[in-house]
Computed example of a mutant assay.
Amino acid sequence: MPNRVSPNIAPSIFYKTDLCPIRSVISGVSGKWPLLILAHLSFGQHRFSELLNGIPDISQRMLTQTLRSLERDGLVERHVTASIPPRVDYQLTERGQTLLPIVQSLMQWGLENRKDIEADQEATDLAKAREAAQKDAA
């Protein structure tokens, strides 16, 4: 069984911003964009344009904001090479590297469960549509 949060910590602590010591850390790496960027950088150093092209549905602004946030958290390093135009590369820091097993586990879990989750979503959506149609017919 995976390690769990100590049972001595009340669950309500996670909902109180001022009391939860890990809330800001989790919020910095959770979400679609940070995880996708970390996954891309797990393969090595990438230029900004490579990240932008590798994650086609991210905007340039969102990529910039997320990279800055990951850099601020000490998970990503930014290297600027003086050239025309300047070359900007990003890579994981040592701390960022320690997050990779978690990111990879989450990605593996997603691959293993994607079809079942999609089937559950489709069944729920269909049930809600039937329910709405029954209300409209009444």
Score class of each variant (00 low, 15 high):
Leu126Asn: 08
Gly44Asn: 09
Ser59Asn: 10
Leu36Cys: 12
Gln45Glu: 12
Lys115Tyr: 03
Glu122His: 10
Pro56Gly: 01
Gln65Met: 14
Ala10Gly: 04
Asn8Leu: 12
Glu71Arg: 12
Leu70Cys: 02
Met62Pro: 03
Gly54Pro: 10
Tyr15Cys: 09
Gly31Phe: 09
Arg72Phe: 12
Asp89Leu: 10
Ser24Arg: 13
Arg78Pro: 07
Arg87Pro: 01
Cys20Phe: 01
Val5Phe: 09
Glu94Gly: 05
Ala127Trp: 04
Asp89Arg: 09
Glu94Arg: 06
Glu71Asp: 12
Ala123Gln: 06
Met62Asn: 14
Ala123Val: 03
Val103Glu: 02
Lys32Trp: 03
Leu75Trp: 04
Arg87Glu: 11
Phe43Trp: 10
Asp125Phe: 06
Pro7Ala: 03
Glu118Lys: 11
Ser30Tyr: 07
His46Ser: 15
Leu126Met: 05
Val88Tyr: 01
Gln108Phe: 08
Ser24Asn: 14
Asp116Tyr: 00
Asp89Cys: 07
Val80Phe: 03
Ile55Lys: 02
Leu92Ile: 07
Leu51Phe: 06
Leu63Ala: 06
Ser24Ala: 11
Asp116Pro: 00
Thr17Gln: 09
Asp89Ser: 13
Met1Lys: 11
His79Lys: 14
Asp136His: 13
Arg130Pro: 05
Tyr15Leu: 14
Arg72Glu: 08
Gln60Val: 15
Ala129Arg: 14
Glu77Val: 07
Tyr90Phe: 14
Thr93Phe: 05
Ala129Gln: 15
Ser42Asp: 05
Ser30Leu: 05
Asn8Cys: 08
Ile9Glu: 14
Asp57Tyr: 03
Leu51Asn: 05
Gly96Ser: 07
His40Cys: 08
Leu52Arg: 11
Thr98Gly: 01
Thr98His: 11
Ala137Thr: 08
Arg72Lys: 13
Leu111Cys: 06
Leu100Lys: 09
Gln108Ala: 13
Ser105Asn: 07
Tyr15Phe: 08
Gln134Arg: 06
Val29His: 04
Ile9Trp: 14
Asp116Gly: 06
Ser49Gln: 13
Gly44Val: 02
Lys115Gly: 00
Asn8Gln: 11
Tyr90Asn: 03
Lys115Cys: 03
Thr98Leu: 10
Ile26Leu: 13
Ala119Val: 10
Tyr15Glu: 13
Leu19Cys: 02
Leu92Thr: 11
Gly74Ser: 02
Ala132Gln: 09
Thr81His: 08
Asp136Asn: 12
Tyr90Glu: 04
Glu77Lys: 14
Gly44Thr: 03
Gly31Arg: 05
Lys115His: 07
Asp136Val: 10
Asp89Val: 00
Leu100Thr: 02
Leu51Gly: 04
Tyr15Ser: 15
Ser69Arg: 13
Asn53His: 15
Gln45His: 05
Ile58Gly: 02
Ile55Met: 11
Ile22His: 08
Ser59Ile: 12
Val80Glu: 12
Asn3Ala: 13
Leu51His: 08
Thr98Asn: 12
Leu99Glu: 04
Pro34Ser: 05
Ile9Phe: 15
Glu112Phe: 01
Arg78Phe: 03
Ala119Cys: 06
Ile22Asn: 07
Leu52Glu: 08
Pro21Trp: 09
Gln45Arg: 13
Thr66Leu: 01
Ile26Asp: 02
Ala82Lys: 06
Ser30Glu: 11
Thr124His: 06
His46Pro: 01
Leu70Trp: 02
Glu112Trp: 00
Asp73Asn: 12
Asp18Lys: 10
Lys135Glu: 13
Arg61Tyr: 01
